[in-house]
Computed example of a mutant assay.
Amino acid sequence: MMEQEQRLIKKYLAGNCTKEEQKAAMKILRRPEPSLLDEVAEEVWNELSTDEEPTIDSEALYKSIEDELGIGNPKTKTSSSLPWLYAACISFLAISAFFFFQQQSINNTPVQELIVKSMPAGQKSTIILSDGSKIILNSGSKISYPKTFTDTTRTITLEGEAFFDVVKDKTRPFSVIANGLRTTALGTSFNINARGSICRVALATGKVIINNQNDTSKDLNTPHILAPGEALEVDSSSKTKRKFTFDPQSELLWKDGVLYFKNTSLEDITKRLELWYDVEFDFKGKTGLQKKYTGRFENASLKHVLDNISYAMNFEYFIQGKKITIINQP
Rank of each mutant, 00 (worst) to 15 (best):
M1W: 12
M1C: 08
Q4V: 10
Y12Q: 14
Y12S: 15
Y12A: 15
L13A: 08
L13G: 02
G15I: 10
T18G: 15
I28V: 15
P34L: 10
S35K: 10
A41G: 12
V44E: 14
V44I: 14
E47Q: 11
E47P: 00
L48A: 14
D51M: 09
P54K: 03
A60N: 12
K63N: 11
I65Q: 10
E68H: 08
L69M: 15
I71A: 11
K77P: 01
L82R: 09
W84Q: 13
L85W: 09
L85V: 04
A88Y: 07
A88W: 04
I90R: 08
A97V: 01
F100E: 11
Q104E: 15
S105L: 04
S105K: 11
N107I: 00
N108P: 00
P110M: 05
P110E: 15
P110A: 10
P110F: 05
L129P: 07
I135F: 06
K142V: 07
P146K: 09
T153N: 10
T153P: 00
T155W: 00
I156F: 05
T157I: 10
L158Q: 05
L158E: 03
L158S: 02
A162F: 03
V167C: 03
V167D: 06
D169V: 00
I177Q: 01
T184D: 08
L186Y: 11
G187N: 11
T188E: 12
T188H: 03
I192F: 04
N193V: 08
A194F: 04
R195P: 00
G196N: 03
I198N: 02
I198R: 01
R200T: 15
L203F: 09
G206P: 02
I210P: 02
N212I: 03
D215M: 10
T216M: 04
K218G: 03
N221S: 15
N221M: 02
T222M: 13
P223D: 13
P223A: 05
P228M: 15
P228Y: 12
G229Y: 11
E230D: 14
E230S: 13
E233M: 13
S236Y: 01
R242G: 04
F244S: 13
F244L: 12
T245E: 11
W254A: 04
W254H: 07
L259N: 02
Y260R: 01
Y260Q: 08
F261N: 03
K262L: 09
K262E: 15
T264S: 10
L273Y: 07
L273N: 04
W276M: 05
K284G: 08
K284E: 15
G288H: 07
L289F: 12
L289V: 11
K292G: 05
F297N: 02
E298I: 01
A300C: 07
L302G: 00
H304G: 04
H304P: 00
L306E: 02
D307V: 00
N308C: 10
N308H: 12
Y311G: 03
A312W: 01
N314F: 14
F315V: 02
Y317N: 05
F318C: 06
I319A: 08
Q320A: 13
G321C: 12
I327R: 08
I327Q: 13
